[in-house]
Amino acid sequence: MRRNASRVLPHACAAGLLAALATACSTESVMSLRPDVDVGVQTAGVPAAVPMTPAPADATAPTPVEPMTAAPADPMTQAPADPTLAAYPRFEVPAEPQDVMPADEVDCRRDLKRLGVKFRDLSPIHEGSCGIDWPVEVSAIGSVRMKPAATLSCSMAATFSRWTKKELVPAARWRYLSGVKTIHQGSSYSCRNIRGSRGTPSQHSQGNALDVMRIELNNGRDIDVRKPGWFAFRQRGFLNTVRQDGCDYFTTVLGPGYNADHADHFHFDIMQRRNGYVACR
């Protein structure tokens, strides 16, 4: 009996040792071997992890777990489809600016149409300090043709058109019993300074000036703006009327007799001056 007991004892000790080890190795102790990981701030689109609750040692059935309901995702914080982009902000591409014609330019073009002006819009002109933001090209004022077509600011085009219809055409009918067929112009828009000035821009450089060289009538008469002879009474009277009436529309009217630069044309412009001063010479 003593010999049999000595054989059973080691087996019993081994079985007891195995049972003790099995009891000590629980699920909680195994999970505690995981390394700590910093996952940072979790987005609303990724549900938070629910800690595992081990069942009581003496429980005969598993404890029911309430089903987890994820909060509705916030579109501003929802995780992107590509997890690698989660840490990057969302950039919106700005819209391309669109050029919109100002209201005064729109009104000016309506005015041109009421005056019967034949014109077309041109692309903006920018040449250093010269240019016109919203230029127009005038080819006719009613039945009066413009040769060559004049590139002007809309304000200058409208002013010149009113003068043509209300002063130039009636003066021609009064003096010559004829309408005006063509206005021959020598310069509209031109990027240049006033000759003899120290860098003062000409009104031509802004499209606010026009030079008239000749006026052709329907009856075939061609009236040169250059100073007429002593006995050309009708032509002199016509040109004096045209020149003087222009001072009611333009802020600058220059012509033959003013200086050598204006000996062969009338210069009209709408330069803005202090106190409404008009240079009519």
Rank of each mutant, 00 (worst) to 15 (best):
E96Y: 00
N259G: 10
R273C: 10
T251G: 14
G196I: 07
G196R: 08
G220A: 08
P170N: 12
T151K: 14
I132N: 06
R175I: 12
P94V: 00
M52P: 03
F119D: 03
P89K: 01
I215W: 01
S29N: 13
V65H: 00
A61F: 03
T63R: 09
G257N: 13
D224V: 14
A73M: 12
A95P: 00
R192W: 04
A79Y: 01
G131C: 07
K118P: 00
E137L: 13
L18G: 08
V253S: 13
I223A: 07
F238D: 11
L18F: 11
V39Q: 13
F119L: 02
P72R: 04
K113I: 02
P135E: 03
A279K: 15
G128L: 02
P201R: 09
M213A: 13
L112K: 04
D264N: 15
C191Y: 07
Q203G: 05
L33C: 11
C25L: 14
F91A: 01
V117A: 01
D82M: 02
Q235V: 14
M271C: 09
V46H: 06
N193E: 13
E216G: 02
P51G: 07
T159I: 10
R145M: 10
R192L: 10
P47M: 04
L17E: 05
R2A: 09
V100F: 00
P94A: 01
N218I: 11
P47G: 05
A279P: 02
G255K: 09
D245Q: 15
A14T: 07
V180S: 10
S197W: 09
Y277I: 15
T252V: 14
V253C: 15
Q203K: 03
F119G: 01
A70C: 07
G237L: 09
M52S: 07
D248P: 12
L152Y: 10
G196V: 06
A171C: 11
Q42Y: 08
A279H: 15
A59T: 04
G45K: 07
M52T: 06
T69L: 03
W174L: 14
N4I: 09
T60F: 03
G116L: 04
T53F: 00
C154K: 04
S187V: 05
A171E: 13
P35E: 11
N259F: 12
A260I: 12
P124G: 00
M76S: 09
V144W: 02
V180G: 09
A71D: 08
V41H: 13
A95W: 00
P56R: 02
P89R: 01
H126A: 13
R2G: 09
V100T: 08
V180D: 08
I141Q: 02
G40N: 09
Y277N: 14
G276V: 12
